[in-house]
Design a protein around this nucleic acid. Structure first.
Length: 505
RNA sequence: GUCUCGUUAGCUCAGCUGGUAGAGCACGUCACUUUUAAUGAUGUGGCCGAUGGUUCGAAUCCAUCACGGGACACCA
């Protein structure tokens, strides 16, 4: 059972003791009238006051006890609320008769959530504090907090019990505040541009819009399986067909694949679609978007990321084929020759899957020799049509598409293209994907006949883009694991959790 | 999926070439009315990740498994 630990038992007894003394250990009678941040700001003038105090002021603050120093008849606490930490000074003689010795010293401890009232003063060591005249327990913590100096460092505990991580590591709160701001700013940026935020289904009859394995769930009333969406793309384009000219959706996608430092089964992206625009317009709006984020987050344009630095003022643009030789060092004479590419890859001791077409081989070259060298933001353009089943062909060269991916710090951050709106071409590409699926590629796209029908009514020329929010936040917060930018990352079940699930079946 | 490192008290960690468990914090008791990880004294607290094996004897050696970290492979 959860509460069999001796320390917890001891604290449950303390809560009982309080109840017997007529004190509610879980009072909701909070009278807080300021945050710690405001208290510190408003009382910053106390330093100049006579006696370094102002007994006419009176504040009530609340928060969790993080440090507890009893020195006989006086004590110092450090209390933390969401906004900050404040030192509180408490003496026996300023509290009701007996309270300090019988309740405060015996029952109150680190982890408890308390409320204190009093006046501001500066201690002998020069720290703005609160001189307490009233003290109340709001919430008794029956579980002891981790060690006060080292806190909790075990990543497994931090991810599984994020609440403990948040209590102990205030920097973690900063990361998630930035994440929240990024999402909020993204929403505002696109709204200000006239985009409409929409919500499309998360349960799809056909998992489309990306190359990925879906999760399957079951609809009992209909007796049919549904897929958790791997991308909202095909629904958002249906909306463009319907006459909306600028839409976006910020939400979760689900992919039934492996988990590692850059992959979580559910992840957040923004996808936006913009009628009467091309991928070139997307390059411009993307630059603008980054500038908007950096301005509003007050980030320096040269941002450290681990060992490297990324210059967010230095956006580059280069066609994929050109990048193979100019950045990847691949001999330019081989990049259109399947045999020679295979030979080249093998000469670098890389295993090459048999039966890849030219575009796929060019993609292999890019992944292998170019991607991790793209540090400053780089738009790689003109993707081969074979690896871009939803992108519009270039009018000049039908072998390539009007597409780009944005790479920063060696990672893909965004994927965008002028959308394919020729229904017959789209049908042909779906058929190609189905052939790939039959020959064993279980990540190939499925045929979506209704989507083809939608296109057959005519979709205005449209540009669309997806940006991975988790990876963007990683970049902006200098985090190197997606788990550090997800409040509750997916974790494998611990042993007895697994057993319980089997018992329920 | 492969390789590699880790898992010991609520937390942070010691524990050598095998001899049956340690520290600090926290908690209990005592002292202390301006401390800063307060201090001093003293005490309680362990299925040493799980299961097997080797051994007279395993936290320690071996095997398998589970979970986590890192690297590689695939994907966003």
């Amino acid at each position: 059972m959860v509460f069999e630990n001796k320390f917890i038992q001891q604290r449950i007894e303390k809560a009982e003791f309080l109840r017997n003394a007529g004190i509610n250990p879980y009072s909701n009678d909070s009278k807080r009238n300021t945050s710690i941040e405001k208290y510190i700001y408003v009382n910053s003038d106390i330093q100049e006051k006579e006696n370094k105090r102002d007994e006419r002021r009176h504040y009530t603050i609340s928060g969790r006890i993080k440090l507890f120093r009893i020195m006989g008849k006086a004590s110092f606490l450090q209390i933390e609320d969401e906004s900050g930490v404040l030192q509180v000074y408490i003496t026996r003689d300023n509290l009701p008769e007996g309270f300090y010795n019988d309740i405060f010293k015996k029952i109150i401890e680190v982890g408890d959530i308390v409320e204190v009232s009093g006046y501001p003063f500066i201690t002998g060591k020069g720290e703005l504090s609160l001189h307490t005249s009233e003290f109340k327990l709001l919430t008794k913590a029956i579980a002891p907090l981790p060690e006060k100096f080292h806190g909790v460092t075990d990543k497994e505990i931090r991810y599984r019990k994020r609440y403990l991580d948040l209590i102990m590591n205030s920097d973690v709160r900063k990361t998630f505040k930035i994440r929240s701001k990024v999402i909020s700013l993204t929403r505002r940026f696109f709204e200000d541009k006239g985009f409409l935020e929409v919500e499309t289904p998360m349960m799809h009859p056909i998992a489309g819009g990306a190359n990925a394995k879906p999760f399957v769930t079951h609809h009992n009333a209909l007796g049919i399986d549904r897929y958790l969406r791997i991308a909202p793309e095909l629904y958002l384009k249906r909306l463009i067909v319907g006459g909306f000219e600028a839409v976006f959706e910020i939400n979760r996608n689900f992919r039934n694949e492996g988990m590692d430092a850059t992959h979580n089964p559910e992840f957040t992206s923004i996808e936006f679609y913009w009628a009467y625009k091309t991928y070139k317009d997307l390059i411009e709006i993307t630059k603008e978007y980054f500038k908007y984020l950096f301005d509003h987050l007050n980030l320096p344009t040269i941002l450290p990321y681990g060992e490297i630095e990324v210059n967010f003022k230095n956006f580059q643009e280069i066609p994929l084929i050109e990048s193979l030789s100019s950045i990847g060092g691949v001999p330019s004479e081989i990049v259109y020759d399947k045999e020679k590419i295979v030979e080249f890859l093998k000469s670098k001791n890389l295993t090459v899957k048999p039966g890849l077409n030219l575009g796929q081989l060019q993609g292999e070259l890019f992944d292998e020799f170019v991607e991790d060298k793209l540090i400053d933001p780089t738009f790689i353009t003109e993707y081969p049509v074979e690896i871009s089943p939803l992108a519009r062909r270039s009018d000049e060269n039908p072998e390539i598409t009007e597409r780009f991916e944005l790479f920063i710090a060696g990672r893909e951050i965004a994927n965008a293209f002028s959308e394919l709106n020729d229904p017959v071409d789209q049908l042909g590409r779906f058929q190609g994907q189905m052939a790939a699926k039959e020959s064993g590629d279980d990540e190939a796209h499925e045929m979506d006949a209704d989507f083809i029908e939608a296109l057959s009514y005519g979709m205005a020329p449209t540009a669309g883009q997806g940006i991975g929010i988790d990876r963007l936040v990683m970049l902006l917060t200098n985090e190197h694991s997606i788990r550090d930018v997800l409040l509750f990352p997916a974790m494998k079940p611990i042993h007895n959790e697994e057993q319980n699930q089997e018992e329920e079946v």
